[in-house]
Each structure stands twice: as structure tokens, then as C-alpha cells.
Amino acid sequence: MGAARIDHVVVPGTFDPVTLGHMDVISRTRKLFPRVTVAVAASVNKRGRGTAFTLEERVEMLRQALAEEGLSDVEVLPFTGLLVDFCHGIGALGVVKGLRAMTDFEYELQQADLNCHMAPDIESVFVMSNPKYGYVSSSIVREISSMGSDVSSLVPPCVNQRLREHYCA
């Protein structure tokens, strides 16, 4: 008997802010799976600091960016707690993560192994970054934007506007 088809996956992240690299992974994931939910993590203590944007702002920016790209069928939901619990709660049987470099792989493999231990019914899928976005990260975008430089080639237009408002206000 064959394995069950995965019809619903989650693309989790902090998305502080969403970048064109994130958008590429979400778009490509949508081509692979019929139902995609982007899970925006609260991550109040990510790497010992808070986020630049509130959870509500990050959810709204993602919804707007996805709508502008014609991906309004991708659901965006905030979450706190364990990712596997979130997946079980919405009926998703897969987690999709984008990988840019070997350092991403090492971290994400460790997370995937832990998730498998806690919830063996949830599969982990890795999508390689498009090389043109391999150097793009939310932290780089925030740093460049906070110094008043242009990040319009790294983020969706609606996010670029929010960054200018956030750092130039």
C-alpha cells in the first residue's frame, strides 16, 4: 500500500520581514502542494532579541505581499508554541523549509529530526533557494533598511514601504 498524499503543508517562519526569497519558496511550494499555510511565528525571543515588527504586522505584510503576487489562496496564520502542534491543529501533514546554504541545512535538519521525533506523521520537505536570493535574509534586510539604504530589490513593494515607514519615521 502506498504512502498517503500530502495535500496540506505549512511554511513556517518569523518573516521579520518577508523577503523575495521567502516569497519564492512560498510560490514554489504552492506549485507542489494543493494547500499551503504560511505560519508566522511569534518568536518573541528569537536569537535573544525581539522582532522589528509585531506578529500582527508580519501577518498583514505577508497577506498583502501574497495577494499582490496572485497567491491569495495561500493562508497566513500566526502561531505560538510547537510547530508540530500547530500542524496537527490545522490538519497539515508536511512542513516546507527553504534552504540557502549549508548552515541553513544543518539547523533545519536538526529541527526536522526533532519534529520527526515528536510527530512522526509530519513530513519535512526542503526547497532549495533560488540562487538569486541565496544571500537575502530578513536580518540583512532590516540592517540595510535601518541605515537608510534601498532594499526594494530584496522585498515585495508593500514590505519596502513598511520598512521605510518603520526606519525613517
Results as ranks from 00 to 15, higher is better:
Pro156Val: 02
Glu75Ala: 11
Glu69Asn: 11
Leu83Tyr: 06
Val18Asn: 05
Val127Leu: 08
Arg49Val: 08
Leu32Lys: 01
Val155Glu: 14
Val11Phe: 03
Ala65Val: 00
Gly70Lys: 13
Met102Glu: 10
Ala3Val: 03
Leu114Cys: 05
Gly148Met: 14
Ala52Gly: 06
Cys116His: 07
Ala65Arg: 02
Gln111Gly: 04
Gly21Asp: 07
Leu163Val: 02
Arg164Phe: 05
Gly13Gln: 09
Gly98Cys: 08
Val127Cys: 03
Asn130Asp: 14
Leu62Arg: 02
Tyr135Val: 05
Ser146Asn: 03
Leu20His: 04
Ala101Cys: 10
Tyr133Glu: 08
Phe79Asp: 11
Val136Asp: 11
Val84Ile: 03
Asn45Trp: 10
His117Cys: 11
Asp113Ile: 07
Pro131Tyr: 02
Ala4Arg: 06
Phe33Gly: 15
Arg30Glu: 04
Val95Pro: 02
Asp73Thr: 15
Asp7Glu: 12
Thr19Pro: 04
Leu163Lys: 15
Arg47Gln: 10
Thr51Ala: 15
Gln161Tyr: 10
Val36Cys: 14
Val44Ile: 04
Ser43Glu: 14
Gly98Phe: 03
Ser72Ala: 15
Ser137Ala: 15
Leu83Phe: 06
Leu93Pro: 01
Arg5Tyr: 02
Phe105Ser: 05
Val136Phe: 10
Val76Cys: 03
Pro34Lys: 03
Leu109Ile: 15
Asp73Lys: 08
Val10Phe: 08
Ser153Met: 12
